[in-house]
Design a protein around this nucleic acid. Sequence first.
DNA 1: GCCAACGTTGGC
DNA 2: GCCAACGTTGGC
Length: 155
Amino acid sequence: MRHWLIKSEPDVFSIDHLAKVKREPWSGVRNYQARNSMWKDMKPGDLALFYHSNAVPPGVAGVARVVGDAYPDPTQFDEASEYFDPKATKENPRWWLRDFEFVEKFPMYIPLQEMKEDDALQGMVILQKGTRLSITPVEAAHYKRVCKLGGGKGK
DNA sequence: GCCAACGTTGGC
DNA sequence: GCCAACGTTGGC
């Protein structure tokens, strides 16, 4: 099993929102690297740290789990959507997504700053300067460490 | 296929 | 709101 970190702006979609709806299609990813992660590299059952970007402060709020197989992101076909992609067709979809289900919200929120200062987390992709990827792989040891900092079970 | 211009992300 | 980083676009 692999571990991931998925970013979301809490103003748009937060861990609390996921807790309420239980399961959510991760739509709107329009970056090829992040798409490839969701499409090819993720497997059902993989666990992901739920990261709040553009938050004050930014940080990890909890855990979500990959559910089911990848399928075409429906928003790419929807002209009314901000994620509409005129170059995508039903025969040849460009953007793929998976559903994520709520696992837990950490008892303690883990600010980005705390992660930066944690010796055990050095090397995490999210901590690299200039990383804007919305979906990144996370090493198992880093995943465990973040869950510990958050006081969560991690699964 | 190069690369300048432009757009977006996201921490601060 | 600023701006560094970096992905994408499009002219050539």
